[in-house]
């Protein structure tokens, strides 16, 4: 019980510290543009055509950490399951790189994790009705 209390205290303390830091630091500019970010966006845009139908069928969903995952390959005809893992891996590679590049473009490489969190929320907010996203470890249909 005491241990739990201490844990809660540390959580509150860290939360307070984070809030204070957020006030002190400028918010990251998620719209920043660099040739690298443009290249990543173009690469993701080109892939989106292939991904969109998978989001709609529920085969692929948005994860809580700003990436995507195969949710249910069985939602697809067999021929459309080809390359689905590679597609997800390539998209995640671009997304991870995007978060890193946005942090670098903001001159704060150490912001990568919080930028990834911010994007995660954005992807889910922008997701179309019927797409799946992860929340508290479970898949939810938007």
């Amino acid at each position: 019980m005491i241990q739990l209390g201490m844990k809660q205290f540390i959580s509150y303390f860290l939360g307070l510290m984070f809030l204070t830091m957020s006030v002190v630091h400028a918010a990251p500019n998620l719209e920043v543009n660099t040739p690298a970010i443009n290249a990543l966006k173009n690469s993701m845009q080109a892939r989106h055509t292939a991904l969109a139908s998978h989001y709609e069928s529920g085969a692929i969903g948005l994860t809580a950490n700003g990436l995507i995952a195969v949710r249910d390959a069985k939602a697809l005809p067999l021929k459309d399951r080809r390359g689905i893992n590679a597609l997800v891996a390539s998209e995640n590679s671009d997304r991870s790189r995007l978060y890193k590049e946005v942090a670098v473009a903001n001159s704060h490489p150490e912001w990568e994790a919080s930028i990834q969190d911010a994007f995660a929320g954005r992807w889910i907010d922008k997701a179309q009705g019927g797409w799946y996203y992860q929340s508290a470890g479970a898949w939810q249909k938007k």
Binding site: L78, K79, R81, R82, G83, N85, A86
Partner: peptide
């Protein structure tokens, strides 16, 4: 018939 055995597809 068709078979999918990740990553191969024999359609």
């Amino acid at each position: 018939g068709e078979v999918f055995w990740e990553p191969f597809y024999f359609g």
